[in-house]
Design a protein around this nucleic acid. Structure first.
Lengths: 189, 189
DNA sequence: GGCGCAGTCTTGTCAGTGGCTAGATTCGCG
DNA sequence: CGCGAATCTAGCCACTGACAAGACTGCGCC
């Protein structure tokens, strides 16, 4: 009754929302968000060109849904983390494993900024990000968190944009990142 | 003979390439690269819709030209730097001062990867980036450079995407970044 | 069981866009 | 002065996003 594939006999698709999201992630990962075409996604799902609009409103709505899903996934990924270094590693692995989500999450021009689902998901991820950041003596905890976030986010971005391919080689990026974590001052002094 | 403004009496514009580039930067800074419309840029410059194509080939060509210009500007900005921290500060200031360039430079999906001008400009900026990175004892110089680059790039990105607005407040971002530089281990041990 | 309603999908349409081709105009250089 | 090359125009086509109006169907409620 609920044909999740592109094959479909009934009038209703049954899993259109999921199908469109999945197809969108493929396209974005391969060619970037600019290459997204709602009509193409509709064709891939085997529905008419206007069907996706019902679920997402418009193009911005679709990207906003993807971003919200991304922040949820990121929050889940970070939730199990122990140390600050471990959270950084998880952050990088998330970016490498979900490049499409990651791109869209940090492209505010593509998103509906006032979407409540997006705001909630972002807040949840932000809380996980800040959780358990112990400030080194004499250091502001918030600054410590931002330095760590910057390091992880910057490396992830540079990795995804192929700016550190030479250095990283075939090594999994989160593993290479472990070696970078050591550059942050540890709270030993 | 060379009316650089949108007003134009002669058949030839005279400064179309510059005019289109400038208009494009405005649009990108305000609404992101996705909002770029070659036809809109042509209208702003007061020329026919196909005129820009002669200078840039296509949309990708225009963005590639912007990215190349951005890497040139970045190289110039970094060239005067002294310490690693100072280069980081300059990197952040460049991103904050040229948000449109910065966005496009690190959006490989939008660029013609094999463009020789882009490759040359990127290489020049890369050389400035690597120049004078002294490795702390026992550290790989390349890893040191990547850590510093990641920190600066990550902070710049988070700043431009409004993810650290609360913490930074009204402070110039490169100034706030100075406080973050201290988290990188200095080569004193 | 059947009925209505809300959710889902379709068809049709319109303006805007990118990119192509053919041609007009003008600049620069010999 | 003249000619080739650079620049710009005009017209066209396929495609896209968004909207409106209508068809289909599953689900809950009586």
């Amino acid at each position: 009754m609920t044909p999740r594939s592109t094959e479909r006999s009934s009038y209703h698709h049954g899993g259109l929302r999921q199908a469109v999201l999945a197809a969108a992630l493929e396209v974005i990962a391969a060619e970037g968000p600019g290459a997204l075409s709602l009509r193409d996604l509709a064709r891939r799902a085997g529905v008419s060109h206007a069907a996706p609009a019902h679920h997402f409103g418009d193009r911005t709505g679709l990207l906003t849904a993807i971003a919200a899903q991304g922040f949820e996934l990121l929050a889940d990924t970070l939730a199990g983390g122990t140390t600050l270094a471990d959270r950084g590693r998880r952050y990088v692995r998330f970016a490498a494993g979900h490049p499409a989500h990651f791109q869209v999450m940090f492209a505010p021009a593509l998103l509906r900024a006032d979407d409540p689902d997006l705001a909630a998901a972002r807040e949840r991820a932000g809380a996980e990000l800040r959780a358990g950041v112990a400030a080194p003596p004499g250091r502001d905890a918030r600054a410590t968190g931002i330095a760590a976030w910057s390091l992880a986010h910057g490396f992830a971005t540079l990795y995804l944009t192929h700016n550190v391919d030479d250095a990283v080689g075939g090594v999994p990026p989160e593993e290479y990142f472990d070696g970078l974590t050591g550059f942050l001052t540890d709270p030993r002094d």
